[in-house]
């Protein structure tokens, strides 16, 4: 039996964590559920590490484990509406593994773009991402229509998305 150091597993897991977390959050829309799944995946990674083929990308292997945990979650909670069909589900997992190198640049760009966000925008993001509220609950909390929250979130995301793309394009064009 081969033994692996804790440092080796920890290093690979830490590097892949943002991609695995983003993949899980694509389908587990409750952030608490997503965190529970992520913890289950991290434990499975440690438990099954001896099965990992070192000649293949670690992130693809870890996403494969996350895929199985997500399927178990879908069955357990009957959240079929949070998922696509098997073909799309597989393609998205593969695309996350292939896009691992984009995770850090997107994060760096987003950090800069967030500095420009207004207090109102930060308030919306707080309700969505910290309080984990859906559009309907945000509308109730702010005493406005669901439609206006939806439009506000769409505009906010579009502004952040455009800012991120612009920054990444500028970074690529720097020799």
């Amino acid at each position: 039996m081969t033994f692996y150091s804790k440092e080796e597993i920890a290093w690979q897991w830490t590097a892949s964590l943002p991609s695995v977390a983003a993949y899980i959050r694509s389908f587990a829309h409750d952030f608490h559920d997503a965190q529970d799944i992520l913890q289950d995946v991290s434990m499975a990674v440690v438990r099954k590490y001896a099965d990992y083929d070192q000649n293949k990308p670690f992130v693809a292997w870890a996403i494969g484990i996350a895929r199985n945990e997500l399927l178990a979650y879908r069955r357990r909670k009957s959240v079929y509406r949070q998922f696509f069909d098997d073909e799309s589900f597989e393609k998205i997992g593969e695309a996350f593994a292939a896009a691992e190198d984009d995770m850090d640049p997107v994060l760096e760009a987003l950090q800069q773009c967030m500095k420009k966000a207004s207090g109102k925008s930060k308030g919306l993001l707080q309700l969505r991402y910290i309080e984990d509220l859906r559009y309907e609950d945000i509308a109730k909390a702010l005493k406005v229509s669901v439609g206006s929250i939806k439009v506000g979130m769409h505009r906010l995301r579009a502004a952040l998305r455009n800012c991120v793309e612009r920054r990444m394009n500028n970074a690529r064009s720097v020799p």
């Binding site: 983003a22 959050r25 694509s26 996350f96 994060l107 991402y129």
Partner: peptide, 22 residues
């Protein structure tokens, strides 16, 4: 597929950034 993944990356990072700021 890649467009979906890019949007999901931003979504996930937003969660982490807001939590870190909190």
């Amino acid at each position: 597929v890649r467009r979906f993944v890019r949007e999901a990356m931003v979504h996930s990072h937003l969660h982490d950034l807001m939590k870190a700021e909190e």
